[in-house]
Amino acid sequence: MSQPLATTPSVRSELHHLQSQNEELRRYLAAQRAVVTSLERRIGKSLDSMGVHSDRLQAVSELPEWREHLAKLQHEVDSLTDLLADTMLLQKLEAGKVEVRLETIELRTLLLSVSRHLQAPTHGSICRLILELADFLPSVIADRELLEAVITDLLARGTRYSELTSPVILGAELMGDRILIKVTAQRFAPPGNRDFATEIVLCCRRIEVQGGEISCQPGPGGKQTVVICLRHP
């Protein structure tokens, strides 16, 4: 009868390390498959919608209706362009081709800056942004451009896809040795479609390359909260 091989502590440690790497690779591949599936589905929907509006443009004769379909067609083109640009940036992040410039940033100033346009709505619209910033917010170590892009994108999506009467909440607080930035909204995707895997993965990579973390959690009243976790000096 064969005897089980004896393993030394160093061998067990190496085996555990390999198992951890394998599990991490499995999670990464699963996330990539989710992104590809999301891209295929959304591009397919956009192309179908573009076909419908293109056909209607050739069929209608009334100018107001023609302009309406033209505007919707342009919206689909713009959405596809943004989606492809995000996908290309995600590929660059994954390949390590985006330079990360970490610096000490005054967080309160940054948050007020990126949300300024939502605090002063125009054309008689109501202010939908609620700021919940802690009295004391230390600086964070981050790449200013990448961090601003993530927060701006989340605020824009929350504002665009939530109902007009539903507020978007931007909060920040110190939790132990970490700073939490929270964006809460009714939804970050069109009604009936909570699939925004591509944007979340892009946000994740933008934050992870800075040494931070990001997660999406259910919020109160069926809302969604995206939490960004960063270090402070």
Rank of each mutant, 00 (worst) to 15 (best):
L202P: 00
E40H: 08
G51V: 09
A185G: 09
E99D: 07
P138V: 10
T225C: 14
I141E: 14
L133M: 08
A185N: 14
R206M: 09
E62S: 11
R160D: 03
P64T: 05
E62T: 06
L147N: 02
D135C: 11
L118A: 06
V209G: 00
R187D: 06
L107Y: 02
L70I: 01
L147F: 06
L230M: 14
R108L: 05
D135T: 13
L63T: 11
K223Y: 02
P191R: 11
S162D: 06
L5Y: 01
I181D: 01
R128Q: 08
A189Q: 05
I214T: 08
S2T: 06
L18Q: 12
T184G: 05
R178I: 04
K72W: 01
H117L: 10
E199W: 05
Q32T: 05
Q19W: 03
S2A: 09
E23I: 05
S20K: 10
R160L: 15
R56K: 04
A197V: 15
A172W: 00
E65Q: 10
M175V: 14
R128I: 14
Q19G: 03
P9Q: 03
G51R: 13
R33Y: 09
T122K: 15
L131Y: 06
A120Y: 08
L147H: 02
E62V: 05
L18D: 06
I151Y: 00
V140I: 15
V140M: 05
V98P: 03
D82N: 12
G44P: 06
E76Q: 13
S215Y: 02
Q210D: 08
L202V: 06
E40V: 12
I126D: 06
A31T: 07
A59C: 09
V227N: 04
V168F: 00
P64V: 07
S10K: 02
T152S: 15
A156N: 10
T7H: 14
H123P: 13
L18H: 07
D153M: 07
R144F: 03
S162T: 07
S79P: 01
A30Y: 12
R116D: 15
V140K: 04
L170G: 02
G51T: 14
I179N: 00
R116K: 15
S79T: 13
E68V: 12
R194V: 01
I105M: 03
G212L: 08
A71G: 11
L47N: 04
V77W: 02
C216S: 15
D78M: 07
E65G: 01
P218M: 09
E148Y: 00
F188T: 07
K97H: 15
A85P: 04
E76K: 08
A120Q: 10
D82A: 15
V226Q: 00
A172Y: 02
A156G: 12
Q210P: 04
R116W: 04
R205H: 14
Q119F: 02
R231L: 03
K45L: 10
I207D: 02
T159F: 13
L118W: 11
R33C: 03
L73V: 14
E148S: 15
T198P: 00
E163R: 11
R206H: 08
H117V: 12
P233H: 02
R41D: 09
R157Q: 12
V11E: 15
Q91I: 01
L15S: 04
Q74P: 01
L89Y: 12
D153V: 06
A142K: 08
Q74C: 03
Y28Q: 14
Q210V: 05
A120I: 12
S61E: 10
L84M: 13
